[in-house]
């Protein structure tokens, strides 16, 4: 009888070896290819933003920033309370939790640009059940729209109201002939927010709002004592939104 146990084992051994060789071959081929960081990308240990509210302190000037940002990221303009926004204007009382019934006139009239604070201890990242929102090593709180299940827990957790949910198909409210074709739109059912322009930083460009601000906004590395943001923070009195909550916002306001 030719079908002995010995022969069977030999055959199995050969087959196993063949399988190993096959997978090793494909592993070798893949070992060559892989991702690297772009050489011209801007790098930092902790990105931060300083907004000079004396320079950009009206609805009109902030709208310029919002327009640049929302065009760069294909953010729809929805005229209901289910709207989406990444950066917008708000009054002193809306922006900061330090009410003053008898504040000075300048502060009463001034508008403040609000956006995601990219907190050092982001509550949104803490609560996300799928790591769809996560913190990058450079401090940017990013969103992975491919992974978001739309539970909106992050919206309840964010004390700054920085997040928007796509209640409906966003493309219904976008000018489809005037899209930024370098950036995607979103789909219905996911949460979105400001991404500190990671897509632009990766190509050595400053964030869209900073570029549009005529120098009123500064963006840089908070951990570098010689950076522009650190220089501004040394020279001016700045405040952050809701510091008592311990989230350590990365956006500073010159008052």
């Amino acid at each position: 009888m030719s079908h002995t146990r010995r022969n069977f084992l030999k055959f199995m051994g050969l087959a196993a070896a063949g399988l190993c060789a096959g997978s090793a071959g494909s592993a070798l081929a893949a070992a060559e290819a892989g991702p690297v960081r772009a050489a011209d990308a801007l790098k930092a240990k902790r990105w931060a933003m300083v907004i000079d509210t004396t320079k950009v302190g009206t609805k009109e000037t902030i709208d310029v920033l919002a327009k640049a940002c929302h065009h760069a990221h294909n953010v729809p303009d929805i005229p209901t309370k289910q709207n989406v926004k990444w950066i917008w204007a708000a009054s002193y009382d809306e922006a900061f939790d330090q009410p003053n019934d008898h504040g000075n006139d300048a502060m009463e009239k001034r508008e403040f640009a609000l956006l995601c604070n990219h907190c050092t201890h982001p509550p949104c990242v803490r609560v996300c059940p799928t790591q769809a929102t996560f913190q990058r090593p450079d401090g940017i709180v990013a969103m992975d729209y491919h992974r978001c299940i739309g539970c909106r827990y992050c919206m309840a957790a964010c004390p700054f109201g920085a997040r928007s949910f796509n209640f409906m198909e966003p493309r219904l409210y976008l000018d489809l002939n005037n899209l930024n074709k370098e950036f995607p739109t979103r789909m219905r059912g996911v949460v979105e927010k400001c991404n500190f322009c990671v897509d632009r930083l990766a190509h050595g460009k400053q964030p869209a709002c900073v570029e549009a601000s005529n120098g009123a906004l500064a963006f840089g590395d908070l951990s570098d004592p010689n950076s522009e943001v650190r220089k501004l923070l040394r020279e001016h009195y700045t405040i952050r939104r809701k510091p008592s909550l311990g989230t350590e916002p990365g956006v500073y306001y010159i008052i």
């Binding site: 309370k81 909106r152 309840a156 949910f165 796509n166 209640f167 219905r188 059912g189």
Partner: peptide, 14 residues
């Protein structure tokens, strides 16, 4: 159509 059929909003998200 998405959750737009509900009364929820950007501020009242649940």
């Amino acid at each position: 159509h998405g959750l737009t059929i509900t009364g929820m909003s950007r501020d009242v998200s649940w």
